[in-house]
């Protein structure tokens, strides 16, 4: 899987690249509009991350170019300008998602995976990890081919972990993704723990070959056994 990052801030570009490379993506970067345009014209990618405010051009124009070239890449706009207009315009131009800075890396992975999954038409819409198979469309999970009954929150939690396997998931990122943005200032997020406890128990009982572990102070990690 090839991903292009068009982002002018070196620090952010590097940290995203490093994080994505851990996921075994092949990552290329562009630091401005012109470089971005050249890369888009010359190569094909599976997913492109585009910042809106770029030196010598707007990221939105890159999205426009992609459409004109009739490219089928999944496009995610990442912008510091969390503006409704930009979001609407970007999505209208054909972007698949819009992510406002700052974001958690786990969230970025989740968005990239779901964007790529939606673009690919090979019918394989399942997310699998070891003996766990999850269908985001049907909202169903099987362990070793046996159905695992989860409530809404437990399903969302597992899905988030499944697309970020063996990675540290920040508890804020998790809470925001599963409970919604509004949770952000609610509390010390300890309530997340009680849900995870239930999910762990169900997974263990079903004989799943993966376990959710707490990482002190930071969050949780889904580890394959």
């Amino acid at each position: 899987m090839k991903i292009l990052i068009v982002e002018d801030e070196q620090g952010l570009r590097e940290v995203i690249r490093e994080s994505l490379e851990k996921e075994k993506y092949i990552v290329e970067t562009a630091h401005d509009y012109i470089t971005g345009l050249e890369k888009i014209g010359s190569y094909d990618y599976d997913c492109i991350l585009i910042d809106i405010m770029l030196p010598n051009g707007s990221g939105l124009n890159l999205v426009r170019e992609l459409k004109q070239l009739q490219k089928k890449e999944a496009v995610i706009i990442i912008s510091a300008k969390d503006s409704v207009d930009d979001k609407v315009e970007g999505l209208d131009l054909g972007a698949d998602d819009y992510l406002a800075k700052p974001f958690h890396l786990a969230e970025l992975h989740a968005r990239i995976k779901s964007a790529i999954r939606r673009k690919s038409h090979d019918g394989d819409t399942f997310v699998t990890l070891e003996n766990i198979k999850l269908s985001p469309e049907l909202r169903s999970v099987t362990v070793n081919g046996t159905d695992l009954t989860l409530n809404r929150k437990e399903f969302d939690l597992l899905y988030y972990f499944m697309i970020n396997p063996n990675r540290l998931v920040n508890k804020t990122a998790l809470a925001e993704s599963v409970w919604g943005d509004y949770i952000d200032q609610a509390d010390n997020l300890d309530f997340v723990y009680s849900q995870i406890k239930n999910l762990r128990k169900k997974m263990k009982d079903a004989g799943a070959e993966a376990d959710i572990q707490a990482v002190y102070g930071m969050g949780y990690k889904l580890t394959t056994s």
Partner: peptide
Amino acid sequence: QTPLAISLNKLE
């Protein structure tokens, strides 16, 4: 936003 994003992600 951007420096915050960098710090947060680097820390992660």
